[in-house]
């Protein structure tokens, strides 16, 4: 699917894996130091973010409002540990700034603010906002016949918000092939499993029924993510929904698939154990 030569592609996948490891370690340090955050969702989204920023998106961190940039909308805006880490890794601001996470007057609010931080496209936090805004961005690109792409990452519990399904209708109606929705399908929301709360399955059928092209991937497999996200959308004639099957807390044994880590914060022993495991 990708046109990159095999050796280069292997190098790229390895580089993405390195970045993902760095993001997990750095975001968990942020959460530990701030004693706040959403580390479970940070970890389920990390591999998706690393793949986007180091394998897929076209951007120049020195020109964050370049009209031709690819857009990435972080709809699951509570997962700022991972989001801010990947933005720093991509060069939007100095890594040292990450140490100010949630401090008074920090640019690094608990949820992202585009007016504070370069690389943030829209202010998110309340769920169900990212896809509708991304829809508008993609429509602007469609009107101008521009070649930038728009990506949006939502949680899965977030899909219980009706606003997503309003936007889903418009995306399909307008055949927004320049839009890609990635669902971080970790199957856990804040309080319980999605399927024990307001069921989403069969999630792929729902998106197909709404007129989308659907791909299912292992959301922790960088090669799979790279293939599906970097494939050209031209001629598909439909928006793309990538259901990335993930685990909340992926990478740390005691957090793995554990709802308690939605917004759990580590004590010193837990932090040190995580750092020993994240190597």
């Amino acid at each position: 699917m990708t046109s990159t030569a095999p050796d280069l592609r292997n190098d790229q996948v390895a580089a993405i894996a390195d970045k993902a490891l760095w993001i997990r370690r750095r975001s968990f340090q942020m959460v530990y130091e701030a004693q706040q955050g959403h580390p479970g969702g940070d970890f389920s989204a990390t591999d998706i973010l690393a793949t986007l920023y180091f394998g897929v998106l076209r951007y120049d961190p020195k020109k964050p409002r370049d009209p031709d940039r690819d857009r990435f909308v972080m709809s699951k805006g509570h997962c700022t540990g991972a989001f801010y880490s990947v933005l720093a890794a991509a060069g939007y601001f100095p890594e040292a700034d990450l140490s100010t996470y949630m401090e008074p007057l920090s640019m690094l609010n608990g949820h992202p603010n585009r007016n504070y931080l370069p690389g943030v496209e829209t202010n998110t936090g309340p769920l169900g906002h990212g896809l509708p805004v991304a829809t508008g961005i993609a429509i602007a690109g469609q009107i101008d016949n521009a070649d930038f792409r728009t990506f949006v990452l939502t949680g899965d519990g977030e899909l219980q918000e009706g606003s997503n399904w309003e936007a889903a209708l418009t995306c399909a109606h307008r055949k927004l092939e320049n839009l890609t929705l990635i669902i971080d399908r970790n199957r856990l929301q804040q309080g319980a499993r999605t399927e024990d709360t307001a069921s989403l399955d069969p999630l792929d059928d729902k998106w197909r029924a709404f007129g989308w092209h659907v791909e299912m991937v292992d959301g922790h497999d960088h090669a799979q993510l790279l293939d599906v996200l970097s494939a050209s959308p031209k001629g598909r004639g439909k928006p793309l929904c990538v259901i990335a099957n993930t685990f909340k807390g992926k990478g740390v044994s005691y957090m793995h698939d554990n709802v308690a880590w939605h917004h759990g914060v580590p004590n010193k022993e837990q932090y040190e154990q995580a750092m020993r495991e994240l190597v």
């Binding site: 009209p67 906002h129 508008g136 993609a138 429509i139 602007a140 009706g162 309003e166 936007a167 418009t170």
Partner: peptide
């Protein structure tokens, strides 16, 4: 003209997205 149908949340959000896209 972008008509999103009877969907006011998307109506307003699409406006925000269009502005992001330079409109």
């Amino acid at each position: 003209m972008v008509n999103v149908g009877i969907a006011e949340q998307t109506l307003v959000a699409v406006g925000a997205g269009l502005a992001n896209g330079g409109k």
